[in-house]
Amino acid sequence: MTDSLSDFDGLLNWPSLQDWVATQSLPGTGPITAVNKLSGGSQNNIFLLSRKDASFVLRRPPKHLRPNSNETMLREARVLAALKGSAVPHPEFHAACADESVIGSAFYVMAALDGFMPIGALPGNYATDPQWRRAMGPEMVKAAAALAAVDYQAVGLSDFGKPDNWLERQVSRWRTQLDGYREMPNYPGSSLPYIDEVGDWLERNRPEKAHIGIIHGDLQFANVMFRKDEPRMAGLIDWELSTLGDPLLDLGWILTSWTEPGDPDMGRKPAVEPWDGFVSRADLIKQYGEISGRDMSDMPWFFVLACFKLTCLLEGTYARACAGKASMEMGNFLHNYALWLMAKARQLIA
């Protein structure tokens, strides 16, 4: 059966992968008989593998590995394994492989989620029923609060990040990353407005104390899946930016993906459509506080930090596009999104 399976231009090495599957305690029996490449994940590759009685998902880095690609894969696997039995909606972890000789990189296997990624036009009842759309924001907040409630030390993730001086390190950490893009060929340098103003505000208004926990790191519509049969989340996906930090940053990240009257008018469209029916940002903040028991008075700071950090990350794709290492269409799109984020941050601090 291996002969009929595509290797997707060298991303999967079937003889050695079949041998590895045979040694693991994975759902189903026998060799892999079918494979489909799934959409989603701009950097990494996701495949649905099927064998007798079962199917599961394999996730691996791109063919041309970055210096930290394998480490990132194994970090993702580690956090998913640590979440077993928690209230966090996530794909069940099955197994990981650090041996690059199997398919050319580290990879891991997890359960397939039954659902869809909400980007652009919503499907089914989400498109026609405002009450289904109204449930989406609270579902994302419940997932963020559930992740924040996990005791990272109890699940073996004490060394998963750098909690010491977390608040104090944020602005310099991401500003250094932004400045580093100057080394990219043909990158004109950051033309982002308000970076210094917003960074200075963040430094001057830093909260007194961080509450350290596991953060997803990129909690937005592109990294969640919702069920098709009811307005509930199927799971959080794409854990490559997960680390230790203050979980209010995850809520700030959700708020950056929201659309409300009064936001900067810069041609930005809602992440999903139709948008009517979605609850307000204030409702999301209130709900998170009620679930978590946290004082939410510092939430404006974390919203601004989310805008600042995401801007610094998105500009990296624009810099790579200028250097010919990414799509210029995508680079321009993300650069324009970064401009909107900085306008929103300045609006918040005004």
Rank of each mutant, 00 (worst) to 15 (best):
M296C: 09
K269W: 01
G262E: 05
D283F: 11
L284Y: 09
T243D: 10
W275I: 12
K286H: 14
A271Y: 01
V279Y: 09
D265S: 15
M296Q: 14
Q287F: 02
D295N: 14
L241R: 11
P261K: 15
D263K: 03
R294I: 00
S297V: 12
L251D: 08
S292H: 10
L248N: 02
P261V: 13
A271P: 07
V279P: 15
T256V: 14
D298M: 14
P270E: 06
S242T: 08
L284I: 13
G245I: 03
M296H: 11
T243G: 07
L248S: 02
L249V: 15
L248K: 08
P270V: 03
T243N: 07
R268M: 08
T256D: 10
Q287T: 05
G262P: 13
E273V: 08
L249S: 09
I285S: 04
S292A: 13
V279Q: 12
G252N: 07
S292E: 08
G245D: 03
D263I: 06
L284D: 10
G277N: 11
D295Y: 03
L248C: 05
D265Q: 15
G262W: 04
M266W: 10
S280H: 14
W253G: 07
W258H: 06
G293Q: 15
S297I: 12
A282M: 12
D283S: 08
G289S: 09
S280I: 14
S242V: 02
P274K: 00
Q287H: 05
P270Y: 04
D283L: 05
L249F: 15
L251S: 02
